[in-house]
């Protein structure tokens, strides 16, 4: 007996029936997708429309004036760039080396499994918790500790750029580690075997074969983490993010004959996302500052979108390489 009684003719009939089902479900899928995209574009459009009206060179470089109702956002851009830069400096090398250790060297035992699960879970901890941790650990423990041991007065034991970036680094570290581990694991075994079979050592294999192939994947994760760090607000509340600073956090390094300007990471700073927050909620007159809010939002969103676009390009490259290898 035949298992089914489908013949060519019944296929034709079925096709018509599924066509209607397909059409309805496709319509629904498209409808919801496009609605979300439409909402997104409405918001973005509004921001770009209002924002571009105020953005010019002066807005991007000058400091807020007249009780924040006029002037630009120069110090906030400056602070964001410095903090994010320091964050990258702290988080990226540590994250990548931790990932290399965990995916390539760590033995598959209970301890390391717990370690991996913990890192995964850390990535989901609310950022405000990291902020409190930063305050407790970096500012009060390390900073105060340094000050009291070296009798430095109040030098590092206060909220500052240094601690803000260190905290953001800890915040994005789990994401960097997890995505880097995934990228490293995606490199096929036969690539490692080829390299080891040619007499390369384990480290040479990692350095010359595994890392180059995982690089676009690692970079994708790194860039997404950076863009997350750049947009973060909550943890910075405790860590030296300032309402308004009359001067850039720049100190002068005195070398006797002359002095050179240096960014002083022990200072407070302004931050784009925090700036939007205070303009919208804390300033004396939020309506007057509306154009500045739009301008600031547009700058922040541009930075984040730019970063994410770079990540998309890297991810595309990564997928291509992996497909190439698997094709063989």
């Amino acid at each position: 007996m035949k298992m089914t009684d489908i013949d060519i003719k019944s296929l034709i009939k079925n096709r018509k029936k599924t066509d209607l089902q397909t059409m309805i479900s496709m319509f629904l899928i498209k409808f919801f997708t496009y609605s979300i995209v439409a909402v997104l574009f409405l918001i973005l459009g509004k921001i770009v429309y209002e924002g571009s009206a105020v953005i010019n060179r002066q807005f991007l470089t000058s400091a807020p004036q007249n009780n924040m109702t006029e002037g630009g956002i120069g110090p906030a851009i400056f602070g964001t760039l410095v903090v994010v830069f320091l964050m990258i400096l702290f988080a990226v090398p540590v994250g990548i080396f931790a990932a290399i250790y965990m995916s390539e060297y760590a033995k598959d035992n209970v301890f390391n499994r717990i370690l991996r699960v913990t890192v995964n879970n850390l990535a989901g901890v609310p950022s405000i918790v990291f902020g409190l941790f930063g305050l407790g650990f970096f500012v009060l423990f390390i900073g105060r500790g340094y000050d009291s041991i070296f009798g430095a007065g109040l030098f590092l034991g206060k909220p500052a750029m240094l601690w803000a970036s260190a905290t953001l680094a800890i915040l994005v570290l789990p994401t960097i580690i997890v995505s880097s581990i995934e990228a490293l694991r995606a490199v096929p075994r036969n690539q490692r075997i080829a390299s080891l079979g040619l007499g390369a050592s384990k480290w040479q294999t990692i350095k010359n074969v595994v890392l180059p192939q995982a690089r676009p994947g690692i970079l994708t994760g790194v860039i997404l983490s950076i863009s997350r760090g750049a947009g973060e607000t909550a943890p910075l509340l405790f860590l030296g993010c300032a309402f308004f600073l009359p001067q850039l956090p720049v100190g002068y390094l005195d070398l006797g004959l002359f002095s050179i300007p240096m960014i002083n990471p022990a200072e407070q700073f302004m931050y784009l996302s925090y700036h939007i927050f205070i303009l919208a909620t804390q300033s004396t007159n939020p309506t007057i500052t509306m154009p500045i809010q739009y301008g600031t939002t547009m700058v922040l969103i541009s930075i984040v979108i730019l970063l994410n676009l770079t990540a998309v390009i890297f991810r595309y490259k990564f997928r291509q390489t992996m497909n190439e290898i698997k094709r063989v």
Binding site: N190, Q191, I193, A194, V209, T321, V328
Partner: peptide, 8 residues
């Protein structure tokens, strides 16, 4: 090796 394993 049995199957080709060139580097990309």
């Amino acid at each position: 090796f049995q199957s080709s394993n060139l580097f990309p």
